[in-house]
């Protein structure tokens, strides 16, 4: 411990480094980039939502223009469902201040990451399945309408269904990969820091380590 006290004295007397900040430049930078940043965050959060709202008029226009069968319009309720789900589950963005206690900030971060994991883990049920059902119904309907073509119709329908399943699998896998690669390790890291603080709060649970 005497050695430690020597280092503690060094801590108090030594220079830890200096940082000079051009606050004016920082302010100008934030002002200049603030709007762009807000738009980027908005677009990131709402890109699926925007896609849905662009898709709906597109579906209606194409359906009317190309005189497509009724099953084509199943894409409208499917897109509305996805958009509604995204809106309902959109993360609550509070103020981005980090001035709360460490435990409070960790709790907020953990909540955000868990929310994101839950959304991506269930992406098949709320995103892929509704869109697949509408697309699949349309493909099968087209196949039924062209059944007089025989095997060609069967093969074409099978090809479209296979393509749909392939795309679904890739999108699903991509989302699960993001969860496993980024979000779950991040959650574990945040929970570990939080548990470390909370366990440190409890002298009983920290007793075994004290014995080391």
């Amino acid at each position: 411990m005497a050695e430690l006290e020597k280092y503690e004295a060094v801590w108090k007397t030594a220079g830890h480094g200096t940082v000079s900040v051009d606050a004016g430049a920082l302010a100008r930078h934030l002002k200049r980039n603030g709007e762009t940043f807000r738009i980027l965050v908005y677009l990131r959060d709402f890109r699926e939502l925007l896609a849905c709202f662009i898709l709906i008029p597109g579906i209606i226009f194409m359906g009317m223009h190309l005189e497509l069968p009724w099953s084509w319009y199943l894409g409208v309720p499917a897109s509305l469902w996805v958009a509604g789900y995204i809106l309902y589950n959109r993360p609550q963005r509070g103020s981005e201040t980090l001035a709360g206690s460490v435990v409070e900030c960790l709790d907020t971060s953990i909540q955000e990451v868990r929310h994101q994991i839950r959304l991506l883990r269930s992406v098949f049920w709320w995103y892929l399945l509704p869109l697949d059902l509408s697309c699949g119904a349309f493909f099968l309907h087209i196949g039924w309408e062209t059944r007089q073509l025989g095997w060609a119709a069967v093969l074409f329908t099978a090809l479209l269904m296979g393509l749909l399943l392939g795309v679904t699998w890739v999108v699903w896998k991509w989302n699960q990969f993001a969860v496993e690669r980024e979000l779950e390790p991040r959650l574990a890291e945040l929970e570990s820091i939080r548990n470390s603080i909370i366990n440190g709060d409890d002298p009983v649970s920290s007793a075994p380590e004290k014995a080391h």
């Binding site: 440190g200 709060d201 004290k210």
Partner: peptide, 16 residues
């Protein structure tokens, strides 16, 4: 206040 834990917890943690 910074960490969001009790003072007693800080003491235990610090000595360790």
């Amino acid at each position: 206040e910074v960490m969001g834990m009790s003072e007693k917890g800080v003491g235990v943690r610090l000595s360790r």
